[in-house]
Each structure stands twice: as structure tokens, then as C-alpha cells.
Computed example of a mutant assay.
Amino acid sequence: MKSGQTAAAAPEARTSRAVFARVSTPYYPVLMSLFVGIMLISNIAATKGVGLFGGWLVTDGAFFLFPLSYVIGDVISEVYGFKAMRRTILTGFGILLLASLAFTATIELPPLDDYENQEALESVVGAVPQLVAASLAGYLVGEFLNSYVLVKMKARTGERRLWARLIGSTVVGEFFDTLVFCSIAAPVIGATSFGSYVSYVVAGFVWKTAVEIIVMPGTYAVVRYLKRAEPSYAEELQRNPAPQA
């Protein structure tokens, strides 16, 4: 065996000091954590059906939080690319699946004789597995389309027209996400009539797209900061200059 192969196979033999791997920058892990956390919290909050304006507008308890997952997804896709976003989506998939299995196992565990919240627990987190299935189906389709459209648009426009990429990718991703999710989740939250289902889909799509537009100045600021803060982005930009207008 060559000496180089020996060193690579047993790096601990080269030094008696404690050695640790280095995290190049903290930004991507933080964004991934926020994305996964929002997805997990949203799946629990979405178990409650919500009727706003006297029940005229049908939505769920995650309506105010879930849209931020697309904002973070846009930032990751714009700065780190499709592969990084795919890794984030699959990580979220695994965490949501683990949560579903954990809730199911918790419900099935025998309760103490004096435990009085079994029915309440089942009524809340017992619905989560179906909502997780709805969320996973919706966000796998929606987030992948959102990231794919954004990256493809960026390949054509370079660093220009970020606003168009943010809106265009969100319209495509949110539409399919909302359609798939609501089709599966509507019976769980109580939207059983055709009218309430249509309201659920339309309200979800319009609201999520509106949030993207409302917070766009903040998205611009975060994207600009990360592009300056990530050393590898500046290096890639120098090697591949943005096309001139």
C-alpha cells in the first residue's frame, strides 16, 4: 500500500492533537435548519382548520408561517444552486417522516392510568401522518419546481432580474404545492364541500404568492448579503461574469 493511501485511511495516525473538521461558513446550515423547522412546525399547525372573516376564507393554522419556507427555498436556490436545495428538501422529507413515525408510535404506547389527554393527543397529532403525506407530496413537487424554475431562469439571465425569478418560480411552485397539498389535506381540516375546497386552494395560492411579493425587499437584502459573505460565490462570479444588459 502506498504511503498516501495509508495516511488517508488512518488520519489519526499522523497527529496526537485533537483534530476537527471545519465548517466553511454557517449560512447554509442555518438556512437549512430554518427551512426544516418551518416545515415541521407547519405540519403540526396545519392540523387546525381556520375560517377567517366568519368562515368565508378557509385555510389552516400554518397559513402565516408556511410561505416563509418558499422564501428560504428561493434564497438557497439563488445563492447555492439546485443541488443544495435538493439536499435541503430531502433532509426535510426525512425529518417530517421521522416526526410522523414518532407521533404514531407515541399514540400507540400504553398511557398511564391517570393520563387524561390520550384522546386530545390523538385528535391533534393523530391527524399529522395524513397531513405529512399531503405536505410531502405537495412540497416535493412544489419546492423542486420552485428551485428548478428559478435556477433555469438564472441560467438565462445571470445575475439580472432577480425579481422575475422570485415571482416566476413562486407562482409555479406554490400553485402545484397548494393544489396537491389541499387535495389531500382538505378532509383532515374539515374542508369537505367543493366550495370550501376551492376556497382553500385559491386562498392558499394567492396568500403564499402575495407573501413572496411582500417580503421581496427582505429577500433581496438576504441574497445580496450572502453573495458577498460566501467566498466561493465571489470566486464563481469572477470565473463566470454575469451577462451584460
Rank of each mutant, 00 (worst) to 15 (best):
P29K: 01
V30F: 12
L31R: 01
L31V: 03
M32V: 15
M32D: 08
S33I: 12
L34F: 12
L34E: 03
F35T: 05
F35L: 14
V36N: 07
V36E: 03
G37C: 10
I38G: 12
M39Q: 14
L40M: 10
L40T: 14
L40A: 15
L40D: 12
L40G: 06
I41G: 07
I41L: 14
I41C: 12
S42Y: 02
S42A: 15
N43H: 05
N43V: 13
N43T: 09
I44K: 01
I44C: 06
A45N: 07
A45T: 08
A45L: 15
K48Q: 13
K48L: 10
K48G: 12
G49Y: 04
G49Q: 06
V50Y: 00
L52W: 03
G54K: 11
G54V: 12
G55Q: 09
L57R: 00
L57E: 00
L57Y: 00
V58G: 10
V58K: 13
T59Q: 04
T59S: 13
T59I: 07
D60S: 15
A62H: 06
F63S: 09
F66C: 10
F66K: 07
L68Y: 04
L68V: 07
Y70D: 04
V71C: 13
V71L: 11
V71F: 10
I72D: 04
G73A: 11
D74P: 11
V75A: 09
I76C: 03
I76S: 04
I76D: 02
E78Q: 12
E78Y: 01
V79R: 05
Y80A: 07
Y80K: 06
Y80I: 05
Y80F: 10
G81H: 00
F82C: 06
F82D: 06
F82W: 02
K83A: 10
A84G: 02
A84Q: 03
A84W: 00
R86N: 05
R86F: 01
R87Q: 13
R87H: 07
R87T: 13
T88Y: 00
I89D: 01
I89R: 01
I89E: 01
L90I: 09
T91A: 15
T91K: 00
T91H: 02
G92D: 03
G92N: 06
G94F: 08
I95T: 11
L97T: 14
L97F: 13
L98Q: 03
A99F: 05
S100Q: 10
S100P: 10
L101H: 00
A102F: 02
A102M: 08
F103Q: 03
F103C: 03
F103E: 04
F103H: 04
F103K: 03
T104G: 11
T104M: 06
A105N: 08
A105W: 05
T106S: 14
I107K: 03
I107Y: 01
I107N: 08
E108Q: 13
E108C: 08
E108S: 14
E108T: 09
E108D: 13
E108R: 12
L109F: 08
